[in-house]
Amino acid sequence: MLGIPVMKLAVIGGVGVVAFALIAHRNAGASQSNAQCAFTVNADVLNVRAGPSTADRVVGRLVQSQPVTAQPVVQNGFRQLDGARWASVDYLVAASGNTC
């Protein structure tokens, strides 16, 4: 068998399986954390701003019932959305299963 002792093959194989399991678990946890920070817009039109203030410039708009992902960061009544954008928490309704 290629000159590699069976015990070494078993150890190498076991290490590979453990490494694969750890990487898969870490990736699953990362995707779940993003999925759990989801909201739906509860306004006809919601301004998205460059920062957490009405003084910050409008960089986009969201519409009624539009789903949006966010970060757990809230400042001055604004929640940070993905892409360093901000929207008022008054018009964001947590999606089902949201723990953000």
Rank of each mutant, 00 (worst) to 15 (best):
Q32F: 08
L46K: 03
L9V: 09
N34H: 05
T99V: 06
T40L: 14
L81R: 06
V93Q: 13
V68E: 04
C37L: 04
V93G: 07
D56R: 03
A35Q: 07
V93A: 13
Q66Y: 03
A84L: 05
A38H: 10
V11W: 07
N27H: 09
L62D: 02
L81M: 05
G97D: 11
R85G: 00
V73I: 10
P67A: 15
K8C: 06
L81H: 07
V74Q: 12
V6S: 04
V74H: 08
T99H: 08
S65L: 09
V45N: 10
T54A: 10
Q64C: 04
V45A: 14
L22R: 04
S31F: 08
V41C: 14
V73Y: 05
S65P: 02
S53F: 05
R61P: 00
S53K: 08
A50V: 05
L22N: 08
T40H: 14
L9E: 10
Q80L: 08
G16A: 04
A55I: 08
S33C: 06
V11M: 12
L22G: 14
N98Y: 07
Q75P: 00
S31A: 10
S65V: 08
R61C: 00
V59R: 10
G51D: 00
V93R: 15
R57V: 04
G60F: 05
A28E: 11
G29P: 01
P5N: 14
D82L: 11
F20Y: 08
G83Y: 00
M1N: 12
L46T: 00
V74M: 08
N42Y: 13
G16R: 02
Q75W: 02
F20K: 07
A30M: 09
L81Q: 03
I23K: 12
L2C: 06
A94K: 14
I23W: 15
N34R: 04
P52N: 12
V48L: 03
N98T: 11
V63Y: 14
C100A: 01
W86D: 01
V73K: 10
R49D: 00
V68C: 11
D56G: 00
N27W: 07
G16M: 04
G3I: 15
A35F: 10
K8M: 06
C37D: 03
F20T: 15
V48D: 02
A19G: 09
V74E: 15
P67M: 14
P72N: 09
Q80S: 07
V68G: 09
Q64K: 15
T40R: 14
N47V: 01
P67G: 14
N42A: 15
A19K: 09
A24P: 04
V93D: 08
W86I: 02
Q75N: 06
R57I: 03
P72K: 05
Y91F: 11
A28Q: 13
L46Y: 03
R79N: 09
R57M: 02
P72A: 09
Q32C: 07
V11R: 14
S96V: 13
G97C: 12
V58Y: 02
T99M: 05
N47I: 01
H25P: 05
T69G: 11
V11I: 15
M1C: 07
G16K: 02
V15E: 05
A43H: 04
V11P: 05
M1R: 11
D82K: 10
G29F: 01
V11E: 11
S96E: 13
L22D: 06
V41P: 10
C37M: 06
S88H: 02
T40M: 10
S88T: 02
A21Y: 01
